[in-house]
Simulated scan of single mutants.
Amino acid sequence: MTAPAHVLNLVRPSVPSERNLQPEEDTMHDNNTPQPLPVTEDELAEQHAVEAARQREEWPSLHDVADGGTVDLSSLWPRMEPERWDIDPAAVVELLAERAGGVANRLDAGVRSLLARRDGNTSVWIRPKPEEDLIEVVAWSAGGVWSQRAWWIRGILEVAADGYGEIRMSPFCATTFAIRGSGGTTVFTEDENGLIGRLLGRWYLGWLGRRAVREQLGYEPIGPEETALDMEEFLSPAPSGRTFTLTIVEGEQQHANGIDLSDADSPVSYTDLPDDVQQWLTDRGYVPERPDVWVLVTPVDELPEAVNVIDVWDVTV
């Protein structure tokens, strides 16, 4: 029995004829919208220079800092509101580096190193003051497994406990954070309202937890040290470092060995490279924002077996 025509119309969807369908690529630009032209290397370099000039003008205390110089962060953190209170302190430091540039990049790299450095490469000295609910903490590291970035940090933490077993640590007074990379050394200070002191409290709680686990399982202890390292000793000339080869390549390198300079595991950080090496990278078309030019890091004299090599440089860090 044949269903009435009006019933067929209800159950059979309308399908457009294939004759009326245009290939997808033919209809993408029917609105005649002009497509943006690709940015040239010169234009990208000019944009980079303009942004650097803006950062230098708006954040002068973070630029032209002498090697071993001191930067007081106390007056800078209020400029990072409301993010200062809304997001993780480490993320605020990263945001500061993006907005300000200069030695804020070294601060960002130092914070990431502090939070990621292995306990076996870190020394810690503590002095509890139970009568005042305070703990003085000094921690330092001469370098990690991959990165030779060194740092020294000191702060006094105020401890608060509530009835639910929660432990909170906050900076009681000024915190000092000295960071040394291949590009130089900067000492950062802040008052009790700063973010580095809050990060120190978070790091110290994590260190205590890992230490307790090692003790429970009978593993080799990881500290604390009997005496603290003075900052003046930390700031003394660093021993000679390791040498790596930087290879600038163009295009994706699927089968090349080596670690990309922007990778978190790279033993060399762009922000810690000496000025002449950064200029060498810029002159050869590399800027951090450009995705098609890579810098592969390998041990000295070990080339990464890459294609489209632009240039090579050996750097000691």
Rank of each mutant, 00 (worst) to 15 (best):
D108G: 03
D133E: 09
L114A: 01
V145D: 15
D86Q: 13
Y219I: 04
W151C: 03
R180Q: 05
T176N: 08
E226T: 13
V137W: 10
R112M: 07
P130G: 10
E166K: 15
W140A: 10
A90Y: 03
R117V: 15
G102T: 08
L96C: 01
E131I: 04
E192W: 11
E226Y: 12
L195Q: 14
V187Q: 02
T227L: 05
E98C: 06
R117W: 11
I135R: 09
Q216T: 11
P89M: 08
A228F: 05
A116E: 11
W125T: 06
S123E: 12
R214L: 15
R112L: 02
G194M: 01
N105S: 13
V159H: 10
R99M: 08
Q216M: 14
W125Q: 04
R112P: 02
V111H: 10
G194H: 05
S147Y: 09
R117P: 01
G163P: 01
D119M: 08
A160D: 07
G184P: 07
L208S: 11
S141K: 08
D133K: 08
G197P: 00
D88C: 05
L107T: 10
M169Q: 14
V92I: 00
V187P: 01
S182E: 15
R118E: 13
I196E: 02
W151R: 00
W146V: 14
E94P: 00
R180H: 14
A142G: 07
A90R: 13
R210I: 03
Y164I: 04
Y164F: 14
G165Q: 02
D133Q: 14
M169H: 06
T122S: 11
R214M: 09
L199N: 00
A109W: 04
A91Y: 01
G218V: 07
L107K: 03
G144M: 12
L195S: 09
I126M: 01
R117H: 05
I179K: 11
C173V: 06
E215N: 01
L205W: 08
I222H: 12
E190D: 12
W203G: 06
A161P: 00
